[in-house]
Design a protein around this nucleic acid. Structure first.
Lengths: 113, 113
DNA sequence: TGGATCGTCAACCGTTTGGTTGAATATGCA
DNA sequence: TGCATATTCAACCAAACGGTTGACGATCCA
C-alpha cells in the first residue's frame, strides 16, 4: 500500500541520516564507529540505522559482536530516477545533464560536505 | 542552520505532495483544482502547498481570487545532484543513464502514477 | 567462569506532522 | 450592495518522530 519512495525520502529528510550515508560512502562501518562523531546516544544512532535499513538505503550484517553497515545505492537511484522525471519538460536542461555525466564518470565530482 | 535538503526531502516524503508535483508537471493549476482529486479537505491541500513552497519545489502566484501553482524543478535538481553523488563509485550505472536520457528526451517516459 | 564490549529493547518525553472543522479574508460579479 | 467563490487562519486532535535513560542479550577474551 505505501510507496517505497515514502521510506526513502523520509529517511533522507534527516541530516544525521544523510551524514551517515556520506560516511558509508567511504567504507563499511560498525554501528559504534558510525555513532562516534555524533553528539547523541548510541541508541539514537541505532534507530537511525533501522530507518535507513527499512528504506533499503543500507544493509546490516552481523559478524561476531560487530554489526557492519553497508551503503546500498540502488534505493537512492530509484528515487533519483523519479526526480529526473521532473526535468523532462525543461527546455534543454544541459546543466543537469552535464552534472549527471560529471558525477557518473567521476571526473571531478565533489560529493558534498 | 538547517540544510535546504531537509525541506526538499521531507516535502517529497509525503505521497500526496508527490502526486501534486506530478499533476503540476502537466500544467500550472489553481489550488482548488489541485485539491479536487484528493479525498481530503481543501485546507489540508493548502497546507501541503505551503510545505512544497517552503521547499522551493513550487511557486504560487495570486491572480485575482485564484492562486496559481507552478512547478519549480530547480530544487528537485539540487537534491538529485546530491543523490547522484552516491552512484559515482558504482561500476557503470548505464541503467540510470539510459533512463535519464529517456525522460530527458521524452521518448516514452512514464512519469509515475 | 566472569568481565568488558556491542548493540537493541522498552518506556518515557516534548515536538512535529497530517488531518479535521468552522470562522475569517479577499476577490469577482450581478 | 450583497452574494458566491477561492483560499487561508485558528484551534484542535491522534499519531509519528527524534531524542533520552536504563536494562537486557550476545559475543569476545582472559
Amino acid at each position: 500500500m505505501s510507496d517505497p519512495l515514502d521510506d526513502v525520502f523520509s529517511a533522507l529528510a534527516d541530516p544525521t541520516r544523510r551524514a551517515i550515508l556520506a560516511m558509508l560512502l567511504e567504507d563499511d562501518m560498525a554501528v559504534t564507529d558510525v555513532a562516534e562523531p555524533f553528539e547523541m546516544s548510541l541508541a539514537a544512532i541505532s534507530k537511525h540505522l533501522v530507518i535507513l535499513t527499512r528504506a533499503g538505503l543500507i544493509t546490516q550484517e552481523k559478524r561476531g559482536r560487530v554489526k557492519w553497515c553497508k551503503l546500498e545505492p540502488d534505493a537512492l537511484r530509484q528515487a533519483s530516477v523519479w526526480m529526473q522525471g521532473f526535468g523532462q519538460f525543461e527546455p534543454v536542461n544541459l546543466d543537469a545533464f552535464e552534472r549527471f555525466l560529471a558525477t557518473e564518470l567521476g571526473e571531478d565530482a565533489q560529493p558534498g560536505g
